[in-house]
Design a protein around this nucleic acid. Structure first.
Length: 287
DNA sequence: AATCGGACCAACCGCCCTACC
DNA sequence: TGGTAGGGCGGTTGGTCCGAT
């Protein structure tokens, strides 16, 4: 059952890395470069699993790893990206130079989550907590399907709507997300009571506090290509056994906006040349 | 000074995807 | 076309630190 271990578990060290191990790994990668993690430990004289070496290198030893506290700007960017991408830590990390997915994940779980909760925001849905609770009670418990829109990362709160659609002809799953200007006074036409209006205004104020850069119109037209490969499997939750739909983010593209990266679209880059656009990861493919 | 509990974070685990044969 | 190795990802665990009592 299952895969065989990636290495001989009986002869590998576990736990914290020693300085000597770090030194060996650094020295080996300095000479031979990254890659072939499975064979690396033996070649480098390390009693470690290849995966462990990779993690150590990526999360700690890599020279471009930025250490230290997160700035307020980084905080806001993480929150924003999480509202768009969900727990896709590697994707979020790709937008924060020098930060690793593990670091961001830890920071989210220990700091930002609590901060959002204290501000009355549901960290998973990015909507006001009371509303998230209401939604949780009203959403029918339908079986999970290949394209379960409930599991698509939500695009922020009630003023930030996501409209998923499936185009079978083009084999594309499209999310149209539009952030309406919070400055527009449009609640009066909704037929809400005064109390509801006040509540919504409070929520909007919370949203402003949470997303200071959200005053402007933001129009995302994200397309996610569905892999045509028959080999693609649905990810199973290890505890519940529930399947989750897999979105192929590498096929994300931004119709009509192909020359701007997501970061720039969101207005987080103020310099003429976005630093992130210089990266070579897939997310910047269209930059 | 000792103990306890919460916060933090490095590291591990299990699963999945993709390239390759 | 199917099997497998290698690499990557998200979730979880466990050790350490530090402040409160």
């Amino acid at each position: 059952m299952g895969r065989s271990p990636c290495c001989e578990q009986a002869h590998t060290n576990k736990g914290a890395w020693t300085k000597e191990e770090d030194q060996r790994l650094l020295e080996y990668i300095r000479i031979h470069g990254e890659g072939c993690w499975r064979s690396l430990p033996k070649a480098a004289g390390l009693l470690r699993c290849g995966k462990s070496c990779r993690l150590r290198w990526i999360n700690y030893l890599r020279p471009d790893v930025k250490r230290g506290n997160f700035t307020e700007e980084e905080d806001q960017l993480i929150i924003k990206l999480h509202s768009l991408l969900g727990n896709k830590w590697s994707l979020i990390a790709a937008r924060l130079p020098g930060r690793t997915d593990n670091e961001i994940k830890n920071y989210w779980n220990t700091h930002i989550k609590r901060k959002l909760v204290s501000n009355g925001i549901d960290p998973q849905t990015h909507r006001p907590l009371n509303q998230a609770a209401t939604d949780a009670n009203t959403v029918p418990n339908t079986p999970t399907t290949e394209l379960d829109f409930r599991n698509v990362p939500r695009v922020s709160n009630n003023k930030f709507t996501a409209k998923p659609s499936l185009d079978f002809k083009s084999n594309e799953f499209r999310i149209k997300a539009k952030a309406e200007s919070l400055e527009e006074g449009n609640s009066s036409s909704s037929g809400m009571t005064t109390d509801e209006e006040q509540q919504q205004q409070q929520q909007q104020q919370q949203h402003k506090d949470e997303y200071p850069g959200d005053g402007q119109e933001l129009n995302l037209d994200l397309s996610i290509g569905i892999s045509s490969s028959g080999k693609k499997k649905k990810k199973k939750n290890s505890t519940t056994g529930e399947s989750k739909p897999q979105l192929d983010y590498r096929n994300f593209h931004f119709p009509g906006q192909a020359s701007i990266c997501l970061c720039c679209q969101l207005g987080f880059q103020t310099s003429e040349i976005c630093r992130n656009c210089q990266n070579t990861n897939w997310f910047n493919r269209y930059c």
